[in-house]
Design a protein around this nucleic acid. Structure first.
Length: 470
RNA sequence: GGCCCGUUCGUCUAUCGGUUAGGACAUCUGGUUUUCAACCAGGAAAGAGGGGUUCAACUCCCCUACGGGCUGCCA
């Protein structure tokens, strides 16, 4: 085991700024965050922007926003990998000086020709540079790349916390390029140098990097550096078992935010996707931090299931404090481009939150249940509600209204009055509910009639009732 | 092509050689109810296939099938 296990934990998330924060990347970030936060360690963020053609500042912003939404706060400054280019090159030169790397003068055309030929003959396409052991006096005066001298026999064992020990024969490793012919470092070098310099102890990343770990270990070994603890986690698939892509719907974190899923529910779902702690399904952030470990991560890819996400989100909404929920909903409205709430609406929403949050899985759903408190008089009933406001119903409402003028406006009194009124009419309260919903909310589906009256208050409730009865 | 990884109910998963293979989401049935949701009770539902090892295999080994990854002067 590496020396890293006895040091304070340092993890990092290292996305490429070529687009939004992919939901799979978000989970990788979450795992790193959870691991570090649960152990009093540090969670670092490094933007892998060495591919200048594809990297954009907009993408970096999108990634930062996605992480902010999910509450994944990182320690220290955001590090740009590109900024470290000189240091990366320095390491390559160090390796060159130590005879652990060499200058290769083969042109890309030559290499390509070799690979094409090898492929045609179904032979290994690993390129063996003829320059590995040539004397400097034989070097031509042309551009060259710097390649590492890969070990030629034996094997490399990746001790992975998720995948177990993975053995790769060294003859499967080629003398990979460290510095391009223009002198710039490649990614494979940059990650290793950065992870070492940042003192990263645990590398938790997608398993598409599993094989790369063996290549990267060549650099660690050549430099005499400690190898970090590896944890290569499986990717997330769409519901059909294929790699999660646009046709599955949302792939960007901000899309989930715009769809109105609460961040806490998202964290819970993403944490549980591919990781388990016995039978625990619903948990708080504090529990997640306490429980999260590498051993609990599964080895097979998991499919994204919106139904389960919603179920978990519903539970989180129900457990979140009213004021915090109101704040999150206001933020949701802003990012999803919907109309902002007026001060009165925000106030009403907060007042009604106690009964709204019990019955919504997403913010749009909650807002839909909240129309009664967000609307102003006069209330225009929708089609279904209108059916409950026929002549007979209006007559009943007209008769009922006076009974509500002198009651104490609390649940018990209201229930007593309405039930008594129903009884007097020779009917049951259930019959009254439809017209009352229509009058109070203009809808056929609403929260409890009593809750609405309580939230709206006596004056407003009576006004709406009179409006409808008129 | 070569190398590497994976495969338990529809889905996420538990199990770490001996269990009636457990839970959750979804689904079905019944109940409660003031609409919707929620809630309560119950049901159906799984070890990819084939060989070994063992008294005993979902669990260990091998092969096959299927899925995925790597094999760049991309990250």
């Amino acid at each position: 085991m590496s020396a890293a296990s006895s040091q304070p934990v340092v993890t990092r998330f290292a996305p490429s700024p070529t687009g939004y924060l992919h939901i799979g990347g978000a989970r990788t970030a979450l795992f790193n965050w959870l691991y570090a936060r649960g152990r009093g360690g540090k969670f670092l963020l490094r933007i892998e922007d060495t591919d200048r053609a594809r990297s954009t500042p907009e993408a970096t912003t999108a990634i930062l926003q996605g992480m902010a939404w999910l509450g994944l706060d990182h320690d220290g400054d955001v590090i740009s990998q590109f900024d470290g280019a000189a240091r990366h090159a320095e390491v390559a030169h160090e390796l060159l000086a130590a005879g652990k790397a060499y200058k290769c003068f083969s042109s890309q055309d030559e290499i390509q020709a070799f690979r094409d030929a090898a492929k045609a003959e179904s032979k290994s396409t690993l390129f063996h540079s003829p320059w590995r052991d040539t004397d400097a006096t034989d070097h031509p005066d042309v551009h060259y790349v710097v390649r590492i001298k890969a070990p030629q026999d034996g094997s490399t064992i990746i001790k992975d916390e998720v995948q177990g020990d993975v053995t790769i024969r060294n003859d499967q490793l080629d003398d990979m390029v460290l510095l391009r012919s223009d002198g710039t470092p490649v990614y494979m070098l940059a990650v290793v140098v950065d992870d070492h310099d940042m003192a990263v102890t645990h590398v938790i990343r997608g398993d598409d990097h599993l094989n790369n770990a063996a290549r990267q270990m060549m650099i660690y070994n050549a430099m005499g550096w400690d190898v970090p603890v590896w944890a290569h986690i499986p990717l997330i698939f769409g519901g059909d078992g294929k790699k999660l892509s646009k046709r599955h719907g949302a792939t960007g974190a901000e899309e989930y935010q715009a769809m109105g899923y609460p961040a806490a529910g998202m964290r819970n779902y993403l944490t549980r996707l591919g990781w388990s702690h016995g039978d625990d399904e619903f948990f708080t952030d504090a529990q997640a931090r306490d429980w999260f470990d590498l051993k609990g991560i599964g080895k097979s890819p998991a499919r994204f299931d919106f139904k389960k996400l919603e179920s978990l989100c519903g539970q989180h909404i129900a457990q979140t404090g009213d004021a915090a929920l109101q704040k999150e909903i206001i933020a949701y409205l802003a990012v999803s481009g919907k109309d902002a709430l007026s001060a009165a609406q925000a106030d009403g929403l907060l007042k009604g939150m106690y009964c709204l949050k019990e019955r919504a899985k997403t913010f749009p759903e909650l807002l839909d249940k909240a129309v009664f408190v967000l609307s102003q008089r006069p209330i225009t009933p929708d089609e279904k509600a209108a059916k409950n406001l026929g002549d007979v119903s209006r007559g009943i409402l007209k008769e009922l209204t006076p009974h509500l003028h002198n009651v104490t406006w609390d649940r018990d009194s209201l229930e007593a009055v309405l039930n008594g009124f129903a009884e007097a009419q020779g009917t049951k309260f259930g019959k009254l509910a439809g017209p009352l919903r229509a009058a109070l909310a203009g809808r056929a589906v609403t929260p409890s009639v009593f809750d609405m009256m309580l939230v709206l208050g006596q004056e407003e409730s009576l006004a709406r009732l009179s409006d409808a009865a008129a």
